[in-house]
Simulated assay, not measured.
Amino acid sequence: MTERSALQRRLEEGIAALGLTLPPEAVPRLLDYQALLARWNATYNLTAVRDPAEMVTRHLLDSLAILPYVTGATLADLGTGPGLPGIVLAIAAPGRAITLVDSNGKKVRFLREAIRALKLDGVQAVQSRVEDVEGSFDCITARAFASFADMLGWGGHLLAPGGRWLAMKGRRPDDELAGLPPGFVLTAMHALAVPGLEGERHLAVIEHAPAPAPRAAAC
């Protein structure tokens, strides 16, 4: 069995365990992305994960685990690094306009090459601090990016009305809930079971707090 066929088997088994159905071309394109990341990583140190099989688990399957919770036509992936989860989501569910945001120049250069090489329509990479990004997005993803207070303090302006912020965490971040800025509310906390990955994984879903109901006029 070649290395790629072994990685494909690991990926396909993980996708099945997650209960996902992806487009027919998704698996080979995800493996093309992993191979490109591994090549660039040898020179530019884009990720601490270097073993290809671990990349499948820690990068591809970990990103795919949040796919059922992604909504809307536009998505911003903040602090995306080498495109996690943004590029994985773009391959797994094409057709959504995705903006990948990172302040690191070498990572953004890799993102732009990945977008070109993988022919990811509707995906763009922006080199910027989160607080300087402009726009409005139906869905925002952030993978181990910062605390709730910092994430929403820097990027809360990017979440469209009715939008959904998906914060990927390790341990259940109950201690961060008190730091939610005014105007935002935690609507769900999902424990994620990532195939082959030890340790806890959680997804916090944050939305705009509902406007208070108008007070009835006094008679």
Rank of each mutant, 00 (worst) to 15 (best):
G155V: 03
V133N: 10
A146N: 09
A142H: 02
R112W: 09
H157C: 01
D138L: 11
Q127C: 12
T141K: 05
F137C: 09
Q127M: 12
R116C: 08
G153I: 04
M151F: 04
G155H: 05
L111S: 11
C139R: 01
S128V: 03
D150E: 15
S147E: 06
I115N: 05
R129A: 07
A114Q: 02
G155R: 01
K107W: 14
D132T: 14
G153L: 05
V126N: 00
T99E: 04
M151T: 10
A144P: 10
S103L: 11
V126H: 00
E113D: 15
D102A: 11
D150R: 15
L100S: 07
Q124D: 06
F110L: 13
Q127F: 08
R129C: 05
V108E: 12
T99K: 04
D138N: 12
F148N: 02
R112H: 10
G155S: 07
V126D: 01
V126S: 00
A125T: 03
G105I: 02
S136R: 11
L152N: 08
G155E: 06
G156V: 08
A149Y: 06
G135W: 00
V101Y: 02
L159N: 00
L100G: 08
R143E: 10
G122A: 10
L152D: 09
V101A: 03
S147V: 05
F137V: 07
C139P: 04
L111D: 12
G135A: 03
A142R: 02
V130R: 06
A117C: 07
I115M: 05
F110H: 13
S136N: 05
S136D: 06
D150K: 14
V133Y: 11
Q124V: 13
Q127D: 07
G122V: 07
S103T: 12
A114E: 03
E131M: 07
T99V: 10
T99F: 02
A125N: 05
L159V: 00
A146H: 04
E134G: 13
D102V: 11
E113H: 15
G135N: 02
V123D: 05
T141N: 05
A114G: 01
V108G: 10
A114R: 00
D102E: 10
V123C: 06
W154Y: 13
Q127P: 10
